Amino acid sequence: MNSYPQAATIAGIDSGGGAGVNADVKTMQERHVFSATIIVAVTAQNTLGVQDFEPVSIKLINEQFKSLADDLNIRACKTGMLADAAHVHAVAQNLQRYDFGPYTLDPVMVAKGGAHLLSDDAIATVRDELIPLATVVTPNLPETEALTGGKIESEADMQAAGHTLQQLGAKNVVVKGGHGANSQTSSDFVLLENGRSFWLSTPRIATKNTHGTGDTFASCITAELAKGKSVEAAIRLAKAFIQAAIADGIDVGHGHGPTNHWAFRKVVQTDAKD
């Protein structure tokens, strides 16, 4: 029997399959990590948008945490869609109650089609209760603005926001630049716990099929942390993983399609041949 690292995703289900828990499980599987799930919400969703969603009961969330803690060896975890302030608070309490290893916070607020997946009152709860617990926080530019209260219009603003998030308690920060104005490259600012910082830049790909990119990126980081990789190594590999997933796209649905979660497998095989 093979013994693989175990990780947990704590988020909402995407009925369309491209984001949320669905993307997390696919990504972790590709990285040879067993993925357990704690479902916070269920969505009626496809590539055209989110038609509806409903949070599960806090009692059931608590029971899911306990079930995993009682039986599995969770070495890393991540959160995604958490619905509202009460559910954010419940997740924060459970993350303090159980040791699920390094924690990656993907502060999901708005779906690719524009639907709000986090209530306004929950943003403050994420900032006050989850950021201080996070090993890595991975907001995009709109999420960074919401969490820090500042406008981001330049790389200098991204750097300042990264330091603000670290001051709020996050150990390591990735301010993702995918929503930036640069039409040639997508650049992320990384600020590590030891104070070192750097940029990760990749060519921007002309495609509408980017549904679930944030979930995929964060879950890849989580999988690598579950293996015992350093935070920097996990972030760098996750950047390569999501770049491959976008570049080698698949055609699903009629709107913002999903990324290709098995694309990185082909990149690794090509590298091995070289």
Results as ranks from 00 to 15, higher is better:
R196M: 04
S119A: 14
I38V: 15
P107E: 04
H256L: 00
L60I: 15
A240Q: 15
D14P: 10
G214L: 12
V50S: 03
N22P: 02
N94F: 07
S230K: 11
C220T: 14
H163E: 10
A90P: 13
L48K: 13
A41K: 03
G169S: 00
S186R: 01
G80A: 08
G180M: 08
T216A: 15
E153C: 00
N62C: 10
K151V: 03
P203W: 03
G177M: 01
K26G: 03
V25A: 06
A23H: 10
G49V: 11
A23D: 15
V252W: 03
E224S: 14
G80L: 04
H116W: 01
W262S: 11
M109H: 10
S197C: 14
V175D: 04
E155L: 01
H179C: 09
A206W: 07
L68A: 05
R236Q: 14
I58E: 12
A90L: 13
D157I: 01
S67W: 03
L68V: 04
L60W: 13
E193M: 00
H211I: 02
D71I: 13
P5W: 02
R31P: 00
T37S: 15
A206H: 15
D157N: 06
A240C: 05
H32W: 10
L147W: 01
T210Q: 11
R236Y: 01
Q159L: 03
I13R: 12
L118F: 09
I250Q: 14
A44D: 07
A23F: 07
A244P: 07
Q243E: 12
R265C: 00
H254N: 08
V21W: 08
S57M: 06
A23C: 10
S186F: 00
P55W: 01
N209L: 03
T37M: 09
N260M: 02
K227I: 00
E153G: 09
T270G: 05
A223N: 12
E63T: 11
E30C: 10
V173E: 04
V268T: 08
H211V: 03
K208T: 15
K176L: 04
V88N: 07
P102D: 04
T144R: 02
Q6W: 01
A263T: 08
S119I: 00
A7M: 07
M1L: 08
D52R: 06
Q96C: 10
D99W: 05
L130N: 07
E153Q: 09
A92C: 12
D188S: 06
V136F: 05
T259Y: 02
L118T: 05
D106V: 04
K273L: 05
F198I: 05
N73M: 11
C220N: 12
Y103P: 12
K66S: 14
A156P: 00
L237A: 04
N94M: 07
F53D: 02
A226R: 14
N94R: 12
R97K: 15
G49N: 09
L192Y: 12
D128Y: 02
M1R: 12
A263Y: 00
V91C: 11
Y4T: 02
N172L: 00
G249N: 06
L168F: 14
T144H: 00
G12P: 08
A86F: 12
L60V: 14
